[in-house]
Design a protein around this nucleic acid. Sequence first.
DNA 1: GTCTATACAGCGATAGAC
DNA 2: GTCTATCGCTGTATAGAC
Lengths: 200, 200
Amino acid sequence: MSSGSKEAGTRQRIVEAADRLFYRQGYEHTSFSDIADAVQISRGNFYYHFRSKDEILDAVIAARLAATGEMLAGWERAADPAARLRSFIHLLFVNRLSIKAHGCPVGTLCGELAKLDHPARQEANELFTLFRAWLAREFARLGRGREADGLALHLLALSQGVATLAHAFDDEALIRRQVRLIEAWLDEQCRAGAREKQSA
Amino acid sequence: MSSGSKEAGTRQRIVEAADRLFYRQGYEHTSFSDIADAVQISRGNFYYHFRSKDEILDAVIAARLAATGEMLAGWERAADPAARLRSFIHLLFVNRLSIKAHGCPVGTLCGELAKLDHPARQEANELFTLFRAWLAREFARLGRGREADGLALHLLALSQGVATLAHAFDDEALIRRQVRLIEAWLDEQCRAGAREKQSA
DNA sequence: GTCTATACAGCGATAGAC
DNA sequence: GTCTATCGCTGTATAGAC
């Protein structure tokens, strides 16, 4: 029952197609017809699997939460906090082509749902919270316990902003250059953390 | 013919209402009925002033470009490059309530138009470019000529990211805390600029 | 489980009276 | 310059045959 299986059930194929389309076109701009075309089923058949479009959104967010949790768990294998934080920054580089084309999947979804004041808004924010808490814990391990959450938000904000600008300007090189600046900032934070640990 | 006049013509009142609604609800989510209710005119009457909804958007972007240009010109009165750059950061603080509620007007509009691949996308990006060029020039004046554009994008990204997170989390305090971190970063850049000027 | 047919609301846009 | 009336289309959602 792997989530990317070729023989996935109809329900799962709907969720996967909706996930991709919500990312590429936005939630509101994606219609049932769009998803139906992608999954190759009729429009009416949706309502056997979901009661409404909002319910599809809920399923998409749940799937993203699960995938994000697994990714963060995978990063735990890195040797030290600095290497783990670098995994996060590296994500911006790895996904630079899709970010250039469609922005950050988390930021664009949360932004749209916030502007629509959509009921699923809080659920989507959990995606941000997952990263925020994970980053804060790694900054704390780095020896920056007191300012850990502030630094986590700073790094989260930087990656969000870079994604926003790269998307708007449709500029891949912007990501590569800014990633280097962020890495330099992280190195500086590591040195500050080491100093704080020394004096403690 | 001041732009905020109470006795503004219908056309201008449409642009002002559309500007506000596009910011609060998003472009696609705002209908003619919404604007008509705000301006207190009938739906049909729109087409005497504009040929389409896209044309209203063009007018809104043009108005924002003009207003932004005037604001940047006003910041020129500050004593030195460091003070001028601080004006930019301060903007995040001054507008923190509307940013918390609706995000950054530039970032959310450019993000939506980019995702829709809307024809007016490039025009909206000019708003970003206005800030980018202005910031780069001030960083150059600060003595950071070689990296001026990279630093400008870094600061722009930071402010965009803070706006995105504050909007998603509906959190005003987040802005105040992150503004302090950004100001500390700017101070560091000022010192680096001074060193570079010394050695030159 | 999947289909076709359809209801019903809202959208952008047009025509024409005043 | 502003109005009412209406068109054509697309959206979500439902009913019911197979």
